[in-house]
């Protein structure tokens, strides 16, 4: 009698418990779900739709213009400069900041505890407000009273003048950096690297500490004599997933460069638009000039690039996961 009751009870309560769990699950997840849709998904759709229109804020209506916005993106020289600046930045900053990050991580790691001081120092730019540091750099690079040119001037009259750069600088003055269209984008790249490589270093350090020490011993026993051989055999493969991640996140961050450029050139993105990157273009066209259609088109392209990169990363990681 008791046994029958018990089995009956479980048969009834089991689905009931499932129902209750399902209800709670949805209840707990709904706020997040709603916000996700409203804040992340709807805007993408909105941008997608608006990129085919000539809508402006304040206008009551708008007209469909088809692919005109996208055509403009690929036809006008301003946007050509935008793509050139963005890709120059990404292609410069990503490899160098990843490479420096890896190099710094290997050096710091090999020094043990003393290395921590360098880790702290290199991480400072990551923590600092980029805008403030951009302004500090702007002063550093001031053509006459900036620290950079003052330091360079100290080389005048020494053997360093043999180098053409110094010879020219001492004769006609050193570059005006931010005002020079040949230098502007590279200065921005430099600051991007300056700011980002410490972050990459820390990620690599995390990867390095997770390498099992016995693997290095095994490599030594197996006859890997040089540090390079051990790097090839143990360190580099172990850092594979970290590297993929670091490269992706560096790319995404590089695509989003804005603060430095807006701080240096609030109007127009650098001398001769040489540093007119995509985020700045979205800001200038879409928000300042209220050209929402073209701004949305740039947004869509931007999203395409970023998602493409992340998907490549996911794919690479998936492949690597099956050790």
């Amino acid at each position: 009698m008791v046994a029958v009751d018990a089995s009956g009870a479980t048969r009834v309560t089991k689905p009931k418990a499932d129902n209750r769990q399902a209800r709670t699950g949805w209840m707990l997840a709904t706020p997040a779900l709603v916000l996700m849709v409203l804040i992340l998904l709807v805007p993408i759709i909105l941008a997608g739709v608006l990129s085919f229109t000539n809508y402006s804020l304040g206008n009551s209506g708008f007209g469909w213009v088809g692919l005109q916005n996208y055509e403009r993106l690929f036809a006008r020289s301003t946007y050509e400069k935008m793509f050139v600046a963005t890709f120059t930045y990404v292609v410069t900053v990503v490899p160098i900041s990843v490479g420096l990050g890896l190099g710094a991580a290997l050096l710091v790691h090999s020094l043990g505890r003393i290395g921590d001081i360098y880790k702290t120092i290199y991480f400072l730019p990551v923590m600092a407000t980029l805008l403030a540091m951009a302004i500090a750099w702007e002063f550093m690079l001031h053509p006459t009273i900036g620290m950079v040119n003052r330091t360079l001037e100290m080389a005048c009259g020494t053997w360093l003048e043999v180098i053409p750069f110094f010879a020219g600088g001492c004769a006609d003055g050193f570059p005006i950096w931010l005002g020079d269209r040949d230098y502007a984008i590279w200065v921005v790249c430099f600051i991007g690297i300056w700011q980002g490589f410490g972050f990459n270093m820390v990620l690599f350090l995390a990867g390095l500490t997770s390498v099992h020490r016995e693997l290095y011993h095994a490599a030594e026993m197996d006859g890997a004599r040089s540090g390079w051989e051990r790097f090839r055999l143990v360190t580099w493969p172990a850092l594979g997933p970290t590297t993929v991640f670091v490269v992706t996140i560096s790319c995404i961050r590089a695509f989003q460069v804005f603060d430095t450029i807006e701080a240096f050139w609030p109007q127009g993105g650098g001398p001769n638009k040489s540093a007119y990157v995509m985020m700045f273009a979205i800001f200038e066209k879409g928000i300042q000039q209220n050209l929402i259609g073209i701004g949305s088109a740039i947004t869509m392209l931007f999203l395409l690039f970023v998602m493409f990169l992340t998907l490549i990363q996911r794919w690479l990681v998936e492949r690597k996961v099956h050790y």
Partner: peptide
């Protein structure tokens, strides 16, 4: 160690995770 002609089996086995079994055995 590399020059002593000894081989060692480690507590954690210390196999190279990115190499196949055959490649692991071939390393030395």
């Amino acid at each position: 160690a590399a020059d002593r002609n000894l081989s060692m089996v480690f507590q954690s086995y210390a196999l190279y995770p990115h190499l196949t079994v055959a490649e692991n055995i071939a390393v030395p």
